[in-house]
């Protein structure tokens, strides 16, 4: 290679390093109307959640369960001067929202915004050696200025250059969440991430809301067996035995040897007095399945 082409290559590399590696879509700018909640000392997790909750109260049938005092009480660790990611998610669930993890890419961030879903990012405003962790609500973007819009500090919809946001987000390991009302599913969710997000909500916060969420997820992925199972199990836990049985039967039509569905349907039958039917179902599995389920064997022994 001649020196001049080496020089050109070097220049290209330097320039390439300066150009934004993230390109915003070539679309008009977008600003979600996310109510601004003024920052308070160390409470950016709670104010971010308040702000998103108010947005959903305006744009969907959603009602917050907690007030701003509760959110602060449930998120702040006084000695750390802030909030851990897990507790931000937990508080969002307690407030009635389902919490989807944001895939760690700008494409995912843009897709959620385009679907009308504001997002909370964890960023490091400082540097690696001197981290200053901060949560911020991303409310939109402006491609002509290569900027995202965020409730970052003291002003609503502040412009943050794509490059700056990229560096700050990179330093948090690109962590972000999409808090949504139970009837909505994140644009970037997969059946698996949706199942997990909704189950976490069912487990720690609100089963009725989770049932709505599973139902919404099943509209998006009607063929997913795991979501069907989860809905059946939630209904059974809720005491809606008849509905749960119907759902387990639907699953068994799709997958006749589904051990969890068989097991749970048998217990529902058993508990309403149809003991013989329950035993026969399980016995049939134990005699015919190539690799009989341990769970079913235990249940069968217990039902004898």
């Amino acid at each position: 290679m001649r020196p001049s082409s080496l020089l050109a290559l070097g220049a290209a590399m330097v320039l390439g390093g300066c150009a934004a590696s993230v390109q915003l879509p070539d679309t008009p700018s977008l600003t979600l109307e996310v109510p601004f909640v003024a920052p308070q000392n160390d409470l950016c997790a709670a104010t971010s959640l308040s702000s998103i909750s108010l947005y959903w109260e305006k744009h969907a049938s959603f009602t917050s369960r907690l007030d701003s005092g509760d959110l602060a009480r449930l998120t702040l660790i006084p000695e750390r001067g802030g909030t851990l990611q897990s507790e931000l998610s937990a508080a969002a669930r307690q407030n009635g929202l389902a919490v989807y993890p944001l895939p760690p890419s700008f494409e995912a961030l843009v897709r959620e915004l385009q679907s009308g879903h504001p997002v909370i990012l964890l960023v490091n405003r400082g540097i690696g050696l001197y981290p200053l962790w901060h949560y911020s609500v991303i409310t939109g973007y402006n491609p002509s200025r290569q900027a995202f819009l965020a409730h970052f500090g003291e002003h609503p919809d502040e412009e943050i250059g794509v490059r700056t946001l990229e560096k700050m987000w990179e330093r948090s390991g690109r962590w972000g969440i999409v808090p949504l009302p139970p009837s909505m599913i994140a644009a970037t969710a997969t059946p698996r991430t949706a199942l997990k997000a909704i189950w976490e909500m069912e487990r720690t916060a609100d089963r009725t809301a989770a049932i709505n969420a599973y139902t919404a997820a099943r509209i998006r992925w009607p063929d997913d067996n795991d979501l069907l199972f989860a809905l059946a199990a939630a209904r059974a836990e809720q005491g809606e035995s008849e509905e749960a049985q119907a759902l387990y039967r639907e699953l068994l039509v799709r997958d006749p040897s589904h051990p969890y569905a068989l097991n749970n349907l048998a217990w529902l039958l058993y508990s309403k007095g149809e003991k013989e039917a329950a035993r026969t179902m399980l016995q049939h599995h134990l005699e015919n399945a190539g690799n009989p389920s341990e769970l079913i064997r235990n249940s069968y022994d217990e039902m004898k």
């Binding site: 000392n41 950016c44 001067g81 802030g82 909030t83 851990l84 901060h134 949560y135 948090s172």
Partner: peptide, 14 residues
């Protein structure tokens, strides 16, 4: 718990 990032508002800790 001691080392996980705790998101807060930067200026206080500065």
């Amino acid at each position: 718990i001691d080392t996980l990032p705790a998101g807060g508002d930067a200026l206080g800790s500065l």
